[in-house]
Design a protein around this nucleic acid. Structure first.
Lengths: 156, 156
DNA sequence: GGTGAAAGTGCGACATT
DNA sequence: AATGTCGCACTTTCACC
């Protein structure tokens, strides 16, 4: 019976995968990546479908969690961006550390990764002192073994 | 005379800095970071200014290069995201290497940084084979000494 | 995925401080 | 120089097909 349930679980996963993205979805994501404020009508024209179809696809992509948020890529002169590699140590779980890191409002993005380090943090601050305080904050989290910080000089 | 011109240059720089961002600009950037598709009217209400004022501020921020683009934060199931650290070697200039890296369409973002490595690349691909081909591409660029790749397991 | 009508939004011109 | 007001066209939204 447990085997059957396991099997059933696999089937449900397949069913989820039926909501696979098609070429128009991929193109839509690419268009939105380039300009997230483009009107549905303009997107529709480029995709060769109607404006309401675009809206429904975007809604679906948001519901599926594919589109996480509409945001901006920006660069405030004087602000300091830092990339902070973090090494965690068992038995503390890496996701627990990630969630703690995210609580800092200067943290923009957190990646859990393979390799020598476990987490990469992208942080943004008004000054290098503020970067220092982010690092202090991260190093104070339980399960953080060490950090390695890179200051961003330029980005594209 | 040359001294005077130099001094004049400094003055012009100061004049440019007069287009400093105020608190409303910072708040506007934060609101857009959270939802880049929010209407000007809704943004205006939150900032306590009129809708056309918001429009003009956003225009100004784009013109100043502060807002680089409106984009989406997204996560396609099955796609592989990799963070690739790159070490460059003189006499090749790091920005030249960055520009070459950017030519690869799977490359999403390039940071030039301080520290042991000179560049961090964020790349996105349909499969790990594609990630491999990005790495091969980067390693084939003149001036690239070594790379270190981390595969993203999860991101927030 | 398309249609149509109502509500909401974008945008330029001009007035205001 | 930055903001506010107004008018109109366009866009979005929400029914339903």
């Amino acid at each position: 019976m447990e085997r059957l349930e396991g099997f059933h679980g696999l089937l449900s996963r397949d069913r989820e995968l039926e909501t696979r993205l098609d070429q128009k979805d991929y193109k839509l994501l690419e268009l939105l990546r380039q300009n997230a404020r483009e009107s549905y009508a303009a997107l529709a024209a480029q995709l060769g479908i109607s404006e309401s179809a675009v809206r429904k696809r975007i809604m679906k992509l948001k519901k599926l969690g594919v589109i996480r948020r509409f945001t901006i890529d920006y660069d405030v002169p004087g602000e300091v961006v830092a990339l902070i590699l973090v090494k965690t140590q068992p038995p503390v779980q890496t996701p627990d550390v990630s969630r703690k890191i995210l609580q800092n409002r200067m943290v923009e993005k957190v990646y859990e990764v393979t390799g020598e380090y476990d987490i990469l943090v992208i942080a943004r601050a008004r000054s290098s002192q503020d970067i220092n305080s982010i690092i202090d904050y991260i190093r104070s989290i339980e399960g953080v073994q060490s950090t390695y910080t890179m200051i961003v000089l330029r980005s594209y």
